[in-house]
Amino acid sequence: MSTYASHVVHGPEHGSVRDDVTVTPDAPVRAGARAAATRRQTAFRRVVYLVSILLMAVPLVSLVEYSVRFPLTGAVNLDAWRKIFAGRTNEYTTLDNLWLGLTNSLIMCLITVVIMLVLLLPTMVWVRLSGKKFSRFVEFVCLLPLTIPAVVLVVGLTPIYRVISTQILNSSAIWLSFAYVILVLPFSYRAMDAGLRAIDLKTLVEAARSFGASWLTVLLKVIVPNIKGALVSASFLSCAVVLGEFTLARLLAKDNLQTALFVINLSDSQVAAAMSFLALALTTILLVVMDLIMNRAPKAPKKLDASKTYRAPKKRIKDTTR
């Protein structure tokens, strides 16, 4: 028929091409230029990984080493760690400040995340639903804190916090959370924006409202479950920011984890080192977990197995064409 064809497949009996996929053992690639390029690239990547991991690990290892090895004498003991894990006891009153700072920071994590979610989520949903009117404004404001340094912000926050400390609330450190919400805006905005973009918000909301759901129900039962990953991501990032924040606390003379670390370093540097290591490790784990949760998306769909789509009829088909 066609003289060009040098290879035509005639399947088994019934003319259907149903041969199974030939599985050849891993055949060597023929002098592959592409494969060589890929190999070079992988080697380069591995070298870079190795160097980066070394560079990242050395500070951490040093912190641990410092925490167990008394710097001046070289004596190795776990005193610093014992002090930390003893917790808040009367025995090590020198660490009181540290526990205060840690407690404050943890409480502030909570408050900040709550305020952030309550403020940002409804706003972003509302902005997305009511057209593009305020979306650029919100985006701009949310990304602004990236460009206004904390040191600058705190200069302007000083009088505000004076008022808060004396007239509205007390001078407890946890009210720093209000300012922290601003600091976490960029990270939270980006995370939630990505999450909201990925769902068809308008349709979901309209569908729910057309069934008579109240706005609260829509928010809590329709929107939140669909952007859980983004919310977790925003929350974890906010925690990371709050735990690592130093500038505002220091300049507004409040105690948080980082300022406490700073102070404790002056009296017991080994404890400071141990605590720093814990904080760094914890924050990293926080982010890794967040990343795993966020990216549990299904992998790229496997290529369609043609044999499944074009299955030969096992029995005579009585009706229908394709």
Binding site: A5, V17, A306, S307
Partner: peptide
């Protein structure tokens, strides 16, 4: 189909 040519020819064929 599955890595092989099932048939080759002019479109009419």
């Amino acid at each position: 189909y599955q890595g092989k040519i099932a048939q080759i020819g002019a479109p009419q064929d």
